[in-house]
């Protein structure tokens, strides 16, 4: 007890007390928090497994389809109707699940702060609150981007020999392959950011994840079922429907242009984040 307390002079209180919570230090703290939770690491591992697993499955399926197309004209027609190169999308075929897992992780990172009471410790150390939120956002988005990019690449490496077996060629270095890898990684990082915003606003894990699932999985289906032009039009602007225009080789009629989709996704990230930060600053912890 005495060693610690006499170690530092308590006499001059006018002097600066020592280093405070600079952004870099808060970032370091949030990174420690991120990597010291087993549940977080499990979700990250699940994402990698799902991405690589679906890549391999998709390679097998695409290969068989191509095989069939070689001997069956109707299958060849169907394949042509798909827009030609199917093999290039194989490495990112697990993206729908990656976005669900990492989006949920985004929700959990914030909601667990409130459900466990950790927020009181976090915001006592960083009373301005926003730096802690931004630091967590950086950690989450960078992790989601890197994990998606690396898993996509590994899924590609696994898929190449499987596809080779059947015929289709997958070039991981092609510009379309690189574009798909980067755009999908940015997209998953964006979903994770939306998840964090939802987790901050709802402060409840189940509620936050349900909101996320509702936005990305339920709304697109519901909008399709509801009759009326409004919903057909509005459906294009859902965040989950921005990924196809963003990764399309050519513009598909009746969808957003790539730049429009980029803006829409950006708005879906920025608006909830700003709302979340306003609420975080205003509300009691």
């Amino acid at each position: 007890m005495s060693t610690s307390t006499t170690a530092r002079s308590r006499t001059s209180r006018a002097a600066s007390p020592g280093p405070g919570p600079s952004f870099f230090r808060v970032l370091n703290s949030e990174f420690i928090k991120f990597r010291t939770l087993l549940s977080t690491l499990i979700l990250l591992a699940c994402t990698a497994v799902v991405m690589v697993g679906f890549g391999a499955l998709s390679a097998w399926g695409t290969g068989q389809f191509a095989d069939a197309a070689a001997s069956d004209p109707s299958a060849a027609e169907a394949m042509a109707a798909q827009g030609g190169d199917l093999a290039v999308t194989v490495p990112t075929s697990g993206i729908a699940f990656a976005q669900l897992i990492l989006g949920s992780l985004g929700v959990l990172l914030m909601s667990s702060e409130f459900t466990t009471g950790m927020a009181r410790s976090t915001f006592a150390a960083v009373p301005k609150r926003i730096p802690a939120f931004l630091a967590k956002l950086v950690v989450m988005m960078v992790s989601a981007f890197v994990l998606t990019a690396v898993s996509t690449y590994i899924a590609g490496l696994v898929s190449v020999p499987i596809l080779d077996n059947y015929g289709p060629n997958l070039d991981l270095g092609s510009s379309q392959s690189v574009k798909l890898l980067l755009v999908n990684s940015v997209y998953v990082a964006s979903v994770a950011a939306i998840g964090m915003a939802l987790g901050t606003m709802v402060r409840n894990s189940a509620g936050g994840i349900m909101s996320l699932v509702g936005l990305f999985f339920v709304a697109p289906i519901a909008f399709q079922l509801i009759p009326g032009d409004f919903f057909v039009e509005a459906r294009k602007y859902l965040p989950g429907n921005t990924i196809n225009p963003l990764t399309a080789v050519e513009h598909v009629p009746d969808t957003l242009e790539a730049w429009q989709a980029g803006l829409v996704l950006g708005a879906w990230v920025v608006v909830p984040l700003v709302l979340a930060m306003i609420l975080l600053k205003m509300r009691d912890v």
């Binding site: 280093p19 928090k33 702060e113 466990t116 009373p127």
Partner: peptide
């Protein structure tokens, strides 16, 4: 500028993940 160095608090034993 450095809140934890000014004041330390135990507000709730459950303020931890």
């Amino acid at each position: 500028s450095a809140p934890l160095r000014e004041i330390g608090a135990l507000l709730d034993a459950k303020a931890v993940h």
